[in-house]
Simulated scan of single mutants.
Amino acid sequence: MSTKAKLRASTIGGTADDVEAAFYEALQRGDVDALMDCWADEEEVFCVHPGGPRLVGAEAIRAAFEHMFGNGAIQATPARVRKVESLASAVHNVLERIEVLTAEGPRHAFVLATNVYHRTAQGWRMVAHHASPGSAHEPGDASEAPQTLH
């Protein structure tokens, strides 16, 4: 079975964790078809990239990722996953480690993302991805930092 077929199979019959793994693998390969296989086929799915507008619907999300992949694959690796799960939905908050190639060599940045999954007739699917700018260095664990409301 090809890698693409394995990813498609995992998104159809797997868990929210499987869909998340397939999503980040598709980002790292720059594979928009595999990435879109992770999304629910619903009009109200949405995506927010760091500093970007809210994209609503699969067409807008696909167009944004096609544009991003025009510059190459996105080397985003999820870490420090925090999960809230129920029978029909799952919310994962992740720290994404992004590698960017510059003239001086590879640089790393961190993005905070929340991924929301619903159990649909097609299996678990992503319904929302919201990423916020992080920092240029790996932040300490949030549980270690003092909690402050704005």
Rank of each mutant, 00 (worst) to 15 (best):
E43I: 04
C47N: 15
D31Y: 08
Q28F: 00
C47V: 07
R54S: 13
P50K: 08
L55M: 13
L35S: 04
V56G: 08
G52E: 15
I61C: 08
F46M: 13
L55Q: 12
E59C: 05
L55R: 11
V32H: 02
G57E: 14
A22H: 01
I61A: 07
Y24N: 05
G52L: 06
D33N: 06
L27W: 01
E59Q: 14
A60H: 11
F46G: 02
A34R: 02
G30F: 02
E44G: 03
G57R: 10
G51H: 07
G57A: 10
H49F: 11
A60D: 11
M36E: 03
A22G: 03
L27T: 00
W39H: 04
E44C: 01
G51T: 10
C47P: 08
E25I: 12
W39Q: 04
Y24R: 02
P50D: 09
R54L: 12
R54C: 10
E44T: 12
V56R: 13
D33K: 02
C38S: 11
D41H: 10
A34M: 07
E43K: 15
F23D: 02
C47G: 05
P53M: 12
A60Q: 14
G30I: 01
Q28G: 13
M36F: 08
F46L: 14
D41E: 15
D37K: 02
A22S: 14
E25G: 03
V48N: 09
Y24K: 03
G57L: 08
L55C: 07
L35A: 04
M36D: 03
C38M: 08
A40E: 11
L55H: 12
A34V: 05
E44Q: 13
A58N: 13
A26P: 04
E25D: 10
R29L: 08
V45P: 04
A60W: 09
G57D: 12
E42Q: 15
D41A: 13
A58I: 12
G57M: 11
E42N: 10
V48Q: 09
Q28I: 01
L35N: 02
